[in-house]
Design a protein around this nucleic acid. Structure first.
Lengths: 249, 249
DNA sequence: GCAAAAGTGTTGGCGCTACACCCATGG
DNA sequence: CCATGGGTGTAGCGCCAACACTTTTGC
């Protein structure tokens, strides 16, 4: 075994694919449609198919660095290592019919970008609502599965860590934070309970001396907050879902 | 990209490592020491170091099949695909100082085996208490991290799925099942509440017409159960830990 | 202009449920 | 001594109501 005679075992293409999630801040969008995924069209890809940004791992490159590099190259979005979280590994022999391909999937959670910088390597890259991507046929390979797994992983992190904050801008309101949870849970959450739940976790958010200014939006201005230092929540932020609560607006 | 000129990108050794967990059924062992991990000593490994079973992925082999094969070869234990769950991927360039190695980690949950079949490929293989393996120096590479991640992943699955049953024999008592949870949580759980929690989830376990017979052990014989058909729990099995509940016995 | 209405943020309260803790009983 | 069942207190949280502060609408 120390000799590695079977060089065939080395013929693996190792990819990293990245699922970049964001939350559409538009308040007119249903909570279930707020969650969006960054996808792109490859120049050589099949027509009409979207794909996750991703590519081969470089020679002396960390897996997370591959993720950051490919997302940057293909979509113009700059990620930080701290935004990345592991999702899974996909390596069935028949996954790609051209050669043996192994994909490591990461996900990233980012605030909604005003506008994507033009990508120099692909025709298009844009955020598409998660709901719409449930149709497998819109995506290449098994990317649909990967996205599904990523959402599951993200929902878990939302309960136990402060990742929800990475969807928010440096200054945010509790409502915006609530919107993050609602987007992933796909249903509406009681504002009162959510607020209590959040400031029961001490060190999660810190109020700042500033009020929100939603331009011409009606309503009372909201207290603004900044992220606290807590990363792993002392008590998880969970919800006992009662029923579907037909989202009315 | 369609040409793959940089063949260097193909020089990856892709490994699969497997964390096999089991629960020591010995009632005299503290709950915190019941959780055990299957480790082995490699013939060419560094002296005194344990390693997880694992090895290179075969040419046309699914990742899970590699896991099953290597565990079988190196420890004599036969796993089923359904026992396996993904843990993570480990691929830092400096992970192995000899070459670029990428490891995909799986974990498996099995009943406590009476005796391990002699392995034909390694000197030793045995189950070691999880607690004792927290000492990084006992393990090769980053296997300590992998084991830690595996326990975290397993604890998650315990809440939401019926994986706890895969630690049990076909016929088991509620106490044995409780022991599984206690081993992972590392603290004692109230028997009465646990019972209620379990049969609140319908279809999880099915009572059979049989009572336990612990030989000469004291206490009332327990109702025996078999596994039900439910895999994903309707309501999770969770615990609100109050305090450390100094485990007394 | 001004008053009413409508929309959002914030706070408080009621009641149900889950669960930790305790006790009783039965093998 | 362990299994099983019941009982009680409490914390979490769903639900609802009240109020604060804003923009919008109607007159």
């Amino acid at each position: 075994m120390a000799t590695f005679k079977r060089t065939k075992q080395m013929n693996f293409f190792v990819y990293v694919d990245t699922v970049v999630f964001t939350i559409n801040p538009d308040r007119d969008v249903e909570p279930g449609d707020r969650l969006e995924v960054l996808v792109m069209k490859r120049p050589e890809g099949k027509a009409g198919k979207w794909a996750l940004p991703g590519g081969l791992v470089g020679e002396d490159e960390k897996l997370t660095d591959t993720s950051i590099r490919k997302v940057g190259e293909e979509t113009g979005l700059r990620l930080k290592t701290s935004d990345l979280h592991h999702v899974g590994a996909y390596g069935d022999p028949d996954r790609d019919d051209r050669f043996r391909a192994i994909a490591i999937a990461y996900m990233a959670l980012v605030p909604h970008p005003e506008q994507l910088k033009p990508a120099f390597n692909s025709d298009e890259a844009s955020f598409i609502p998660y709901r719409r991507l449930r149709d497998k046929r819109l995506l290449e390979f098994d990317h649909s599965n990967i996205i599904y797994d990523a959402r599951k992983a993200a929902r878990q992190l939302l309960e136990d860590t402060n990742v929800a904050l990475s969807f928010c801008n440096p200054k945010f309101t509790i409502s915006e934070l609530r919107g993050v949870y609602e987007a992933f849970l796909q249903y509406r959450v009681d504002p009162a309970n959510f607020r209590r739940k959040v400031d029961a976790v001490d060190g999660l958010v810190i109020p700042i001396d500033e009020l929100s200014d939603f331009g011409s939006l009606p309503g009372r201005p909201a207290q603004m907050y900044k992220a606290g230092r807590t990363t792993t929540l002392s008590s998880p932020i969970r919800f006992r879902r009662s029923q579907d609560t037909k989202t009315r607006r």
